[in-house]
């Protein structure tokens, strides 16, 4: 069975610009870092059959998602020479235009950070049990499909 405490990645609601700025600032003491790579996912105002997406509401099978994220994290640390890695994903409602995913990798040289960040984003979208309901302005909704 699952052991130990898994690192939480979930944030209630939007991920704020100040949270992201603080996260960057915290790395100033890690002077072995030569490059950061950051991916920010933003809720897009898709228009479907004339109706605009006003927000996405995220839910997750949290225990399984955190376990899966732990496995992804371990594999990425083995594959790339990273100094650190941070992942945050929203739960609950995130309005269009706001940030719902924050992936942040750092390494002594840029390539590892960039490639690890990109691979992490793909894995997060494909492998984490998270679901997004696209909420329209008229209060109806549909379930998001990842491309």
């Amino acid at each position: 069975m699952k052991e130990g405490k898994l690192k939480n990645i979930f944030v209630q609601g939007s991920i704020t610009a100040s949270f992201i700025a603080d996260s960057i600032q915290k790395h100033s003491s890690k002077t072995g870092i030569g490059g950061h790579s950051i991916f920010l996912g933003q809720v897009r105002t898709d228009e479907i059959n004339g109706k605009k997406v006003a927000a996405i509401e995220y839910t997750s099978y949290e225990e399984m998602a955190l376990q899966k994220m732990h496995e992804i994290r371990e594999a990425i640390f083995v594959k790339y020479e990273l100094t650190c890695m941070h992942v945050y994903h929203s739960l609950g409602k995130v309005p269009a235009g706001e940030i719902c995913l924050f992936v942040f990798t750092s390494s002594p040289h840029r390539k590892a950070a960039i490639e690890a960040c990109s691979e992490l984003v793909e894995k997060i979208k494909a492998e984490l049990p998270v679901w997004g309901a696209e909420l329209f302005e008229d209060n109806s909704h549909q379930w998001k499909v990842n491309q």
């Binding site: 099978y61 997060i124 979208k125 998270v130 679901w131 997004g132």
Partner: peptide, 9 residues
């Protein structure tokens, strides 16, 4: 757990 297609991010 029954898991529909994932759509996080």
């Amino acid at each position: 757990a029954l898991l529909p297609p994932f759509s996080g991010g």
